[in-house]
């Protein structure tokens, strides 16, 4: 029987396991920070709100009932904190405006996504590596990561044994890891 990683982490965090909490933070912090950056347009504020979010998660994990995905729950906490910040700081808009000046390469530019790509070394390298990767590897990996398909479905689509899917996805990750190891 399969148990999701999130279920296992939640169970252990509820038992007060700080190491499990750290693994959860590693997993979700980048996505929470990115969403807050889009929401606030402020790196400093987003970092602060991200930290507050995970503190809140640690404090409130017992109230998480599993009615939504873990990420959804964490995301809602982060957005509520951001909203509360703006409600309580309506008279402090000047400081927010000032902080926007240093965001050129940090805030996702919806109007010019190509610039966003060019300005991010990690994305450029990953993009380049994907293009040159053998098609069987990149297809298996893309179906998993972009489409969130389980291995057995990928196995049926690609008409290969599940062990081959496992191997292809792992090899794709390894190729990508080696390409980016100098910038992480």
């Amino acid at each position: 029987m399969k148990t999701s990683v999130d279920e296992a982490l939640i169970h252990q965090i509820k038992d007060g396991d700080e190491d499990a909490f750290e693994l959860m933070v590693i997993k979700y912090r980048p996505r929470i920070l990115a969403s807050l950056l889009r929401y606030t347009s402020s790196r400093e504020l987003s970092e602060d709100l991200t930290q507050q979010t995970f503190l809140r998660v640690w404090e409130k994990i017992d109230t998480f009932k599993g009615n939504s995905a873990l990420f959804t729950w964490i995301y809602s906490i982060s957005i509520n904190l951001a909203r509360n910040y703006y409600v309580s700081s309506q008279g402090k808009k000047t400081s927010l405006t000032d902080s926007n000046e240093n965001l050129e390469n940090e805030v996702i530019d919806f109007k010019n996504p190509e610039n966003q790509l060019l300005n991010n070394e990690l994305l450029v390298k990953v993009n380049s590596c994907l293009k040159s990767m053998p098609i069987d590897l990149r297809t298996a990996y893309s179906l998993r990561v972009e489409e969130q398909m389980p291995y057995d479905e990928i196995s049926k689509i690609m008409n290969v044994p599940i062990g081959t899917v496992r191997s292809r996805i792992f090899r794709a990750r390894e190729i990508l890891s080696k390409q980016i190891e100098d910038i992480l």
Partner: peptide
């Protein structure tokens, strides 16, 4: 590293 990569691919 693996998480960074997965996130990067989703961003792309």
């Amino acid at each position: 590293t693996y998480i960074e990569i997965d996130n990067a691919v989703n961003s792309l």
